[in-house]
Simulated scan of single mutants.
Amino acid sequence: MPLSRRTLLGLGGALVAAGLSGVGACGRAAPAPVARRGTFEVEHDDDQWRRLLAPAQYNVLRGHGTERAFSSPLNGEHRRGTFHCAGCALALFSSAAKFDSGTGWPSFWAPLHGAVGEMRDSTLGMLRVEVHCRRCGGHLGHVFDDGPRPTGLRYCINGVALDFIAA
C-alpha cells in the first residue's frame, strides 16, 4: 500500500519526536556500509571513502544515512545549473527539474538520463525505492510517486550527497 507524503512526514516527525536522530521522511538511520564491490565504475575501499568524503557525506553516501530536514543549503538553491554526486562528480539532476516539495530536502521530478540507479528498500516497515548514483553507488535518497508533472515523481535527495555547479 503506497503511503502519502503526509503519512511519511507524520511518521518521520513521530520518529524524530521519539528521539531517533538521523531519521526523516526521506530516509533511515545509518546502517553499516554496504559492500557491493565490482558493481560500479568508481570504487574505493571504506578507508578511502572516509578520507575522500566529509563525515556527513560519508554517512549519507556510504552509510545510507539521512541529513536533517531543512539543513541543506541546496534545498533553497534556485540558480540554473547541475547537481552532481559528491562522491564521484557525476552529473545527476538539472536545476530545470528541481521543485520545492516542502519536505525539507532538495527534490527533483526527474534525474538526468542514465545518472541514477534504483533499488527496493523495505526498511522502517514500508516499501520505498532507494536512489543511488549509478557510477559510484552512493546513496542519494528515495523516489516517491507524489511529485509534479510531467513525471509525477519526487526524487527526495540528501543535499549533502550533492555538489551544485552553476550554469
Rank of each mutant, 00 (worst) to 15 (best):
152 G>F: 13
95 S>M: 07
139 H>V: 11
152 G>E: 03
157 I>W: 03
72 S>D: 13
163 D>K: 12
100 D>N: 13
146 D>W: 02
139 H>N: 12
126 M>Q: 06
144 F>T: 09
91 A>V: 04
73 P>G: 01
63 G>S: 15
60 V>S: 03
20 L>P: 02
93 F>A: 02
45 D>K: 15
33 P>N: 05
141 G>T: 05
100 D>E: 09
59 N>T: 08
57 Q>Y: 00
81 G>H: 06
26 C>A: 15
5 R>A: 08
66 T>L: 08
37 R>V: 02
51 R>C: 07
24 G>L: 08
10 G>L: 10
58 Y>S: 08
148 P>G: 10
41 E>V: 14
89 A>N: 15
23 V>Y: 07
150 P>E: 08
9 L>S: 02
94 S>W: 00
74 L>A: 13
76 G>W: 01
153 L>W: 00
104 G>H: 13
161 A>Y: 10
105 W>G: 11
116 V>R: 08
98 K>H: 06
11 L>W: 04
44 H>D: 05
155 Y>R: 05
135 R>N: 01
47 D>N: 05
159 G>Y: 02
69 A>Q: 15
103 T>Y: 03
165 I>E: 13
48 Q>A: 15
88 C>E: 12
92 L>R: 07
121 D>T: 03
105 W>Y: 14
132 H>K: 00
155 Y>M: 10
22 G>T: 00
155 Y>W: 05
118 E>M: 12
165 I>V: 15
10 G>Y: 04
98 K>T: 04
166 A>I: 08
67 E>I: 02
16 V>M: 11
127 L>A: 13
77 E>C: 13
119 M>F: 10
6 R>A: 15
84 H>G: 03
68 R>D: 14
112 L>I: 14
52 L>H: 06
151 T>Y: 00
30 A>D: 13
13 G>M: 10
86 A>N: 00
74 L>D: 14
153 L>C: 06
68 R>L: 07
70 F>C: 09
56 A>N: 14
44 H>E: 03
90 L>I: 09
104 G>F: 02
119 M>C: 08
15 L>W: 04
